[in-house]
C-alpha cells in the first residue's frame, strides 16, 4: 500500500479577531488587521485553513524603559522618548503592522502618570500612524482600571486591542471595552485552565467572542519559554478539538521579554562563549518568536528591527505552503 498523508480534521475553528477600524467602520485607521480563523495546527495547510497570517506589531513607550538594551537603543536612540515618532519609525522603516503603546509610567511606582496623560500619549500615536493600536497596561489593578477606562473612552470607535485583563481584575476593563467597542487581551499565568476560566468569565458577561485574544504569558527563550510553548500547544489543540472557550488567537511578547534578559545585554568581551552581542540580541528575539509561532501564536509584539524583519520574512515563507504541495 502506498503512502497517504495522514490528515487530522478538527471540529473547532479559532475565532477571527479584527483589530482597528477604518473610517467606514467608525475609526481612523487606514486598514484593519484580522488574526485567527485557523482550522488546523499552525502552518499545516494540507488539512485546514489559515485565512490570516500572524500579525507583527512593535511597541512604543510612554516612558523610556529603565533597562532598555544597548543593542536596541542603536536603532531607536532618536525616537525612544517620543512615542509618536517611534511609532512612525516602527511602521515606516521596520514594517510594524500594529503598534503597541505601553503605558508603564501610569504605574504608581513608576511615575504615576494620570489617565489623562496616558490618553494623550495614545492620542499622539493614533495621530502619527494609521495602523491599528494595542494599548498595553500593567498589573496595578486600581490604577490601570482608571487608565484603561479613560483610554477606551478617548479611542472610542478605533477598535483597539486593550492589553490586558486577568482573572482577578477583568470586570471594569472588559465593561469599558464593551462600551466603547474595543477588543481585549485575556492574560493568564501559563495555565490552560486559567486561560479558559478567564474566557468563560468574559463570555459569561457577554463579552463578544470575536473580540478576545489570549495572552498565555510569554517566557523568553531560556526563561520559561518551554512552559509558554507547551501551554500554547495545548490551548491550540483544545481549541481546534472543539473547546470554544480556548479557540482564540494568541498574542505573545518576544520583544518585551527578550529585552529584559541578560543574554541581549552583555557583550562578547564579558561572555566570550556567547558570541557577538549584536547578533545575539536579534537571535534571542527571533528564536523566541519563531518557536512560539510554531506553537500557534497569531499576534507577535517585537522590539528588535532585525528580528522583526527576519520573523516577517519567515512567516511569509511558512505561508508559501498555502498554495498546496
Amino acid at each position: 500500500m502506498g503512502f497517504e498523508i495522514p490528515i487530522e480534521k478538527n471540529s473547532g475553528k479559532i475565532a477571527e479577531v479584527t483589530i482597528g477600524a477604518t473610517s467606514e467602520q467608525g475609526g481612523t485607521r487606514s486598514n484593519t488587521i484580522t488574526i485567527g480563523g485557523s482550522t488546523a495546527l499552525p502552518f499545516l495547510f494540507f488539512e485546514g485553513e489559515h485565512p490570516n497570517r500572524p500579525a507583527l506589531a512593535m511597541e512604543v513607550f510612554d516612558k523610556v524603559p529603565a533597562k532598555y538594551p544597548e543593542a536596541l537603543l542603536d536603532y531607536y536612540r532618536d525616537v525612544i522618548d517620543k512615542p509618536a515618532d517611534m511609532a512612525k519609525k516602527c511602521v515606516e522603516q521596520y514594517g510594524a503592522e500594529l503598534i503597541s503603546v505601553r503605558l508603564d509610567e501610569t504605574h504608581p511606582e513608576k511615575g504615576d502618570r494620570s489617565a489623562d496623560e496616558a490618553a494623550d500619549v495614545v492620542r499622539q500615536v493614533l495621530d502619527s500612524v494609521k495602523v491599528p493600536l494595542i494599548i498595553t497596561g500593567h498589573s496595578h489593578y486600581e490604577k490601570i482600571n482608571v487608565v484603561m477606562k479613560k483610554v477606551c473612552e478617548v479611542t472610542a470607535g478605533e477598535n483597539c486591542l486593550i492589553n490586558y485583563v486577568e482573572t482577578d481584575n477583568y470586570k471594569t476593563i472588559a465593561a469599558a471595552c464593551m462600551a466603547y467597542n474595543h477588543s481585549i487581551v485575556a492574560q493568564s499565568p501559563i495555565d490552560v485552565n486559567m486561560a479558559k476560566q478567564l474566557n468563560i468569565l468574559l463570555s459569561d458577561m457577554n463579552f463578544p467572542s470575536e473580540k478576545i485574544v489570549i495572552d498565555p504569558l510569554t517566557g523568553a527563550l531560556g526563561y520559561g519559554l518551554e512552559y509558554t510553548y507547551s501551554i500554547m500547544e495545548r490551548i491550540r489543540n483544545d481549541g481546534l478539538a472543539g473547546d470554544s472557550m480556548l479557540a482564540f488567537p494568541m498574542i505573545i511578547n518576544p520583544g518585551y521579554e527578550s529585552s529584559r534578559v541578560k543574554e541581549v545585554r552583555v557583550t562578547e568581551e564579558e561572555y566570550p562563549d556567547w558570541g557577538d552581542m549584536e547578533l545575539r540580541s536579534a537571535y534571542w528575539e527571533t528564536a523566541t518568536a519563531m518557536s512560539l509561532l510554531s506553537a500557534g501564536s497569531e499576534l507577535i509584539v517585537m522590539y528588535h528591527p532585525k528580528a522583526m524583519e527576519t520573523v516577517k520574512k519567515h512567516v511569509d515563507e511558512l505561508y508559501s505552503a498555502e498554495s498546496g504541495n
Partner: peptide, 16 residues
C-alpha cells in the same frame, strides 16, 4: 560555525 547562534540554539534546545 557561529557562537551566538549556537548559544541561542542551545538555550532553545534545552527548553524544548
Amino acid at each position: 560555525y557561529d557562537k551566538a547562534l549556537l548559544y541561542t540554539l542551545f538555550a532553545l534546545r534545552q527548553n524544548i
